[in-house]
Design a protein around this nucleic acid. Structure first.
Lengths: 219, 219
DNA sequence: CTAGCATTTGTACAGCCGTCCAAATGTGGC
DNA sequence: GCCACATTTGGACGGCTGTACAAATGCTAG
């Protein structure tokens, strides 16, 4: 019991397999038996460790959301130290989405796999998941909105919320349909390349945030 | 047979109910029996009219995609007649997404309901649906990209594809999670108000399209 | 070695799923 | 009235679902 290192190897194998399958095929479409087979575990073991399918999903969220939001808070604090409002805006936007796009699939604190899982599960309108997502992500999202408001004091808060929403939509959509941009550009752009996606999203989002509020523009 | 008006009342009732349920709960989560009950039809009638659940989904797409894309082409042609590139850009963006956001749920040629269905089904990674969507929407999407390229001749085509992709993502995300923006703004913004969403998306997207390409900005 | 707990196994269960089909019913032309 | 066809009905089918549980196994402390 002293070395809590690899004590629950099976439990984590199940979590890994479930996360992989859910992120690829959605929550409802993946059966407990598929997860059992993919993880090498017995069907009953999943019930033993997680109680139910919903419990399994909840465990996946619990494993990730803490470290991920800690990482985002870290990046946000770092970005907020930047003096120049223009540079700061860009840094905040990058901090907002970088943990969701980081390619390191295995890492607990982030990774595109968990982000894709959230996007897919959210689209399925799974009630339990929506509640979990709202509870764990709202506070940090509000912190980012506050930071953005500080960069753009002239902008109504509602506009900032809308544009933050669009930013999340762009990330979500890219994670769900990476091939779309590849096909539409005839291979010139690569949707699966998360670094390229990051650069493109940041540039577009920063410009969107800098758009005028209600009246006509005046550049 | 002369009055082809209400000849297939049951068939259309099934389509309506299925479209409603699919757009609200996703494809896999809705059972044939639910659709039967909601439409007042017998379970066997659905098989009779559409062959299978996939056939039903396909019929929904066939009912909408033609008129919808005709409407989008119409709006695009109209927008392309605008001389001033700045005004034209905005008109094209509006034409691109307006049919997906128009609140008239009943209409065949568009409506948020069908758009939400597409977004949800797409997120479920239903293979049949993805093929249908790609086939029926790629040509018109490429036409829009060409029109945008004409407004922004200095911009690499890959950048335009990326930003068009983000635009679709913002629309999709808003249709899937309308309440998010409402909650995050404490009611100041209303995600369910499609007119407000349209204005906000257009303003943000136009600014994003006008962002510089690769090098540093210079305003 | 053994007692006791943690974990794994195999199986059973009730329920819902999409699909299929024969029979019943409705409908329009002759 | 009657025939032929379109549609609707109700039920049955095999298969898959998530969950539950007793029995078997593994493992660790004493």
């Amino acid at each position: 019991m002293l070395t809590a290192q690899r004590q629950n190897s099976m439990r984590e194998a199940i979590l890994d397999a479930a996360e992989d399958l859910f992120s690829k095929n959605g929550f409802r479409a993946v059966s407990m038996r598929e997860i059992a087979q993919a993880s090498g575990a017995n069907l009953g073991s999943i019930s033993y460790h997680f109680g139910s399918k919903d419990g399994l999903l909840r465990a996946i969220y619990e494993r990730h959301s803490g470290p991920m939001n800690r990482r985002r808070q870290e990046l946000l604090t770092e970005a907020q130290r930047i003096r120049d409002p223009d540079d700061r805006l860009e840094a905040i936007v990058r901090a907002f989405i970088l943990p969701s796009l980081s390619q390191t699939e295995g890492s607990i604190g982030g990774g595109a796999r968990f982000a894709r899982l959230r996007a897919v599960v959210m689209a399925e309108r799974h009630e339990d998941a929506q509640k979990i997502i709202a509870e764990t992500f709202n506070p940090i999202n509000l912190a980012f909105i506050d930071a953005l408001q500080a960069c753009l004091p002239h902008l109504p808060r509602a506009d900032i919320v809308w544009r933050t929403h669009f930013l999340l939509g762009a990330v979500s959509y890219t994670l769900i349909n990476p091939w779309r941009v590849t096909r539409l550009s005839d291979g010139e752009a690569n949707g699966e390349n998360t670094e390229e996606a990051l650069v493109q999203i940041v540039r577009a989002a920063v410009a969107a945030f800098r758009a005028p509020a209600g009246s006509d523009p005046a550049p």
